[in-house]
Each structure stands twice: as structure tokens, then as C-alpha cells.
Design a protein around this nucleic acid. Structure first.
Length: 268
DNA sequence: ATGGTGGGAGCCCCA
């Protein structure tokens, strides 16, 4: 049974609903995980997704900032909307669904960006980011209840050298500092997670999913970072097929600064 | 060598 899961930081779901519709028409992913929806739950455009064949919509939003949503053609049940660092931000939603006779838990995350100054002593946003990632150590790929798990989202960290356009120039830039990248990889491995975007791609090859709005020509300068991720439990790796990064979406009209990433599985 | 852009709220926050 084929299964495709998309993750996309949409940067306002109401403003960019036409872009999500374009993704649906082009790719028809079975499940779409959005971040930065910036939409209170009662104003989420649920009916539009129903009309497009996505009958199952779970949201965890708030006014103005943050917010995640998981939109599905397959039946899903909301499992949890977790709070991290004892702050009421809407940054996590997990759902359960069945595919190929297996029960799968799907986590959708929006990790704090962390501000500009990479010093937790003087920048509380950076402290929050480090604490948030540390608390993610509790999110395990094998949980004893499900047959597998997938974790996606805007994790706001580019862990490897070739996840950024210039490793050397970004070592002191939030998203690629050693304290972030090391904590991130430690957390991923401790949780039993496999980095699917790198599973069949050489660590020497550049991968980006985000390009800043503050570039005169994002495509020409191509100063990107891999901030969006798709992980799975070891149990789903045999069924994993490939990942597609929709770079073209960065050039769509009024784009998000992130592009959709789609993982395809074939679960027997 | 610095500021560049964008969304949402509401006279400034966050990315």
C-alpha cells in the first residue's frame, strides 16, 4: 500500500490556501502536515480541505503565531497536543492512522526558531529552543503501542555541514551552531529516529528546504538551509521509498520561505 | 559592512 506524507511550513494557512491547493492538485499527498498556520482553530479552513477530499483535519493553532495542522485523506485520530517547556505555544500535534495493516503514530512539530543571538545566557528565545529540543528526547520512535512512528516538521535546525550553503559562515548563526546541531543529532539518535531525507543521499550533497525572504534573488544566490525534516522509526525504513523536495514551490506566487517535502512509503 | 523581506496584529511582535 503506497503512502505519502508531506510537511510544509506554510507561513499563514489562510493567506496561502491557494498554494496548499496547488500542492494537492500536483501531488495529492495522503497526509499533509502544516506548520506556522497562524490561525486560531475556529477560523481554520476545514471545509476547503473537506471539499478537496481531505475528510480528516486536526488542528492545534493559536492567534497570530505558530500553529500546526495535520490534514488527511486517511482516517486519523488526534492523539495528543503536547505542551513543551511549560509554555502554551501551539507547536506539536500527534495523530494515529493505519496503513498496510499497521498502526502508525505521526508527530507534527514546529520547533522554536530561537531568535538571532546564539547565547542562551542573554537570549531567552535561544534558551527556549535548546530546552525544547532537549524535551524532545521524550518522543521515542518505538513506543510499545504502535507498529511504527513518523516525525515531521519545521525543526529549525540544519544539522549537517551540507544542510547549509556555507558551513563555515553559519557556525555562529542560529540554526547551525554546534550546540544546536549536536543536541539535535543526539536527540534524534537517542529517540531511535532515522533521518529519511539523508537515508539515500550522500552527506556531501547539499539539501535545502528553506531560503530567506531577505535575498534579492533566492534562486541565484541559493543560500538555503535544510530546516524541515522527515524521520521514521527503524520499523518503517524497509517500506520507505523516497523523499521529494519541491524546490519550485519557493518560486510560486507569494511563496512561503519553506518548500514542501514529501516522503513516499510502500507498506506491504 | 549592514540590512535586507514577510505575516499578523494593531502603533511592534516574530520569523
Amino acid at each position: 500500500m503506497p503512502l505519502s506524507i508531506a510537511t510544509w511550513n506554510i507561513n499563514s494557512v489562510r493567506l496561502r490556501l491557494p498554494l496548499v491547493e496547488r500542492l494537492i492538485l500536483d501531488r495529492a499527498p495522503d497526509i499533509i502536515c502544516l506548520q506556522e498556520t497562524k490561525c486560531p482553530d475556529e477560523l481554520f479552513p476545514v471545509e476547503r480541505f473537506h471539499a478537496l477530499g481531505y475528510r480528516h483535519v486536526e488542528v492545534h493553532g493559536q492567534k497570530g503565531y505558530h500553529g500546526v495542522a495535520t490534514i488527511s485523506r486517511l482516517p486519523i485520530q488526534a492523539v495528543e497536543r503536547r505542551r513543551f517547556c511549560e509554555i502554551a505555544d501551539s507547536r506539536h500535534l500527534s495523530v494515529r492512522f493505519e496503513a498496510g495493516g499497521r498502526s502508525i503514530l505521526l508527530h507534527n512539530f514546529y520547533v522554536p526558531a530561537g531568535g538571532d543571538e546564539p547565547d542562551p545566557e542573554i537570549n531567552p528565545k535561544f534558551r527556549h529552543k535548546l530546552d525544547f529540543v532537549s524535551e524532545m528526547n521524550a518522543i521515542r520512535a518505538e513506543n510499545g503501542e504502535d507498529d511504527g512512528a513518523i516525525l515531521v516538521g519545521d525543526l529549525n535546525i540544519a544539522p549537517l555541514e551540507h544542510d547549509v550553503w556555507s558551513h563555515k559562515q553559519l557556525l555562529k548563526v542560529v540554526s547551525h551552531t554546534p550546540v544546536e546541531t549536536e543536541g539535535f543529532e543526539t536527540m534524534r539518535k537517542a529517540g531511535g529516529w532515522v533521518d529519511l531525507m539523508r537515508h539515500n543521499v550522500s552527506p556531501e550533497q547539499k539539501i535545502y528546504t528553506w531560503w530567506s525572504y531577505r535575498a534579492a534573488d533566492w534562486a541565484a544566490s541559493d543560500r538555503g538551509r535544510r530546516l524541515d525534516h522527515i524521520w521514521s522509526s527503524q520499523s518503517l525504513v524497509a517500506g520507505f521509498r523516497d523523499v521529494d523536495i519541491l524546490r519550485d514551490a519557493r518560486g510560486w506566487e507569494r511563496p512561503s520561505d519553506h518548500v514542501p517535502v514529501i516522503a513516499r512509503f510502500d507498506l506491504g
